[in-house]
């Protein structure tokens, strides 16, 4: 039985590289928000409460150029719909006894990267592990925004370009290693990336909002795989 403290600390430690990536990406968000006319406080508050990248970039632009409540709400729903699937998936990794408040608190923290790390934690997922991740990642995301909005362009463009790839590298590192032992996962990753590449150039699919395309592709590809390659009974 590992102590609660060590589970939380493990989350914080695993969260460090994500936090570093978040600093860079939210710095870019802070910069963009400032240019759109947001105050440093408003931009930082948005990061602290929203904890999304695409959703915030889209939302900030809408607010700055004038929007309606309905338009803003629908955009967030579409851009962030993938979190719904991630949350469904995580619900199966938690101990069933996990209480309402614990689940409510975890809900705040399901970003792509925190989800990626949480789902890789051995079953059952301890909320404390996710809290450890959140304790690093949320302050980093907020602080990066604050620095980007207040300091502006202290990083050179080439440094920003290099940092732009960090979050993709982390998502890759969270899933690809599992493909070494598991043929189904290898197939899933290859098929998903190729289909997604195709969808980005095919007419109709290409013009779909990105968030919606992610959800559509996820539902279709996951359904086909689950139907064709169901899990063996003993697997979690």
């Amino acid at each position: 039985m590992t102590s609660k403290r060590s589970v939380f600390l493990r989350g914080m430690r695993d969260g460090l590289p994500v936090g570093a990536g978040y600093l860079a990406v939210s710095f870019a968000f802070g910069l963009a928000a400032r240019r759109l006319g947001f105050t440093t406080l408003a931009a930082s508050l948005m990061s602290f409460t929203n904890l999304t990248s695409a959703g915030q970039f889209a939302g900030a632009e809408l607010i700055a150029t004038g929007t309606t409540v309905i338009e803003l709400a629908l955009t967030q729903l579409v851009v962030n719909a993938r979190y719904f699937l991630m949350s469904c998936s995580l619900s199966q990794r938690l101990d069933q006894q996990t209480g309402f408040l614990q689940r409510a608190l975890m809900g705040w923290g399901i970003s792509d990267e925190i989800f990626a790390l949480s789902q890789a934690y051995p079953m059952p997922l301890s909320p404390l592990y996710t809290y450890g991740l959140m304790a690093i990642c949320i302050p980093c995301w907020t602080l990066g925004t604050l620095l980007g909005a207040s300091l502006g362009a202290v990083l050179s463009q080439s440094m920003m370009n290099a940092l732009g790839i960090a979050l993709y590298a982390m998502l890759t590192a969270a899933i690809v290693p599992h493909s070494r032992q598991d043929k189904t996962i290898r197939l899933i990753i290859v098929v998903s990336m190729s289909t997604s590449g195709l969808a980005a150039i095919l007419p109709m699919l290409r013009d779909m909002p990105g968030g919606l395309r992610i959800v559509l592709l996820t539902v279709v590809i996951t359904s086909l795989t689950a139907w064709r390659f169901p899990l063996k009974e003993e697997q979690p």
Partner: peptide
Amino acid sequence: FLRSFLSYVPYVTLSVMVFPDVLSAT
């Protein structure tokens, strides 16, 4: 089916998010 679906979601959704968007990240 649902169990398999939920356990495969991370791999599919994260793969779809990485590619091809990564190609315009720099």
